[in-house]
């Protein structure tokens, strides 16, 4: 079945990326260290006042994940470009979108592990108490991550193959990520303070809609991006 073939291809690409990442080791450790550093810097920026720090924690958490994640997105093509391995990869039979799906999957796992560390550190640094609604919080984190990783992986396919990729990726990606970050931050904030206004649900639906729209459009557009 065609779908099963595509899934197997995507899984192979993801497995290859993750193994390469695991063997290099330096990649994930330094990105995670950067994420923690950003959290500490936010702590200094927001002052010693415990209440102010707690109130700003959702924003700091997502921004730390974003800034550290950007490095991961560029890396995911960089290793192949440096080794001249992207062209051979594109020459394999089958739809190109399975390559995108594979990279997406690998980045999802990578950023998920990053988020685990970032969230664990922010729980300590920002005096967050885990609410009883933590499964919903986990859902929000995963949905927000899907949006982040989808657009990140997509724009990195362009930016990493241009001049000045370090500047171009954030410049293209951050404005596009405004809605997903806004929704993820607001939903996280609502769930952490107990959702008295009952707006976590609305933000979560917005996240779902956003994820669906951008998953479909990036899958449709990836063929054009990788072709050139």
């Amino acid at each position: 079945m065609a779908f099963r073939d595509e899934w197997l291809r995507a899984r192979a690409v993801a497995w290859k990326d993750l193994m390469a990442e695991r063997r290099s080791k330096a990649g994930f450790n330094s990105v995670a260290a950067l994420g923690v550093t950003i959290l500490v810097l936010f702590g200094f920026a927001l002052g010693p006042d415990a209440e102010a720090i707690r109130a700003a924690a959702p924003g700091a958490l997502w921004l730390a994940a974003l800034f550290a994640g950007v490095l991961a997105f560029n890396r995911s093509y960089q290793v192949e470009l440096d080794g001249g391995a992207l062209e051979p990869l594109l020459m394999y039979p089958g739809a190109r979108r399975s390559i995108f799906a594979g990279k997406l999957l690998a980045n999802f796992v990578f950023v998920f592990l990053l988020l685990v560390i970032v969230i664990a550190v922010s729980l300590v640094l920002f005096h967050i108490t885990v609410p009883s609604t933590w499964p919903r919080l986990l859902l929000v984190v995963l949905l927000g991550e899907v949006g982040l990783v989808t657009l990140g992986t997509f724009y990195a396919a362009m930016a990493s193959r241009s001049r000045a990729r370090e500047v171009l990726l954030p410049l293209l990606l951050f404005p596009m990520l405004v809605p997903v970050l806004l929704a993820a931050m607001q939903a996280t904030k609502a769930l952490l303070v107990g959702d008295v206004m009952h707006d976590a649900g609305a933000w979560t639906s917005l996240l779902v809609a956003y994820d669906v729209i951008f998953l479909i459009s990036t899958f449709l557009a990836f063929d054009y991006v990788i072709e050139a």
């Binding site: 930016a159 241009s162 000045a164 171009l168 410049l171 293209l172």
Partner: peptide, 11 residues
């Protein structure tokens, strides 16, 4: 602005 930068950085 990102769109114009993309055009400037890809030859």
């Amino acid at each position: 602005a990102g769109y114009l930068a993309l055009r400037a950085f890809v030859e």
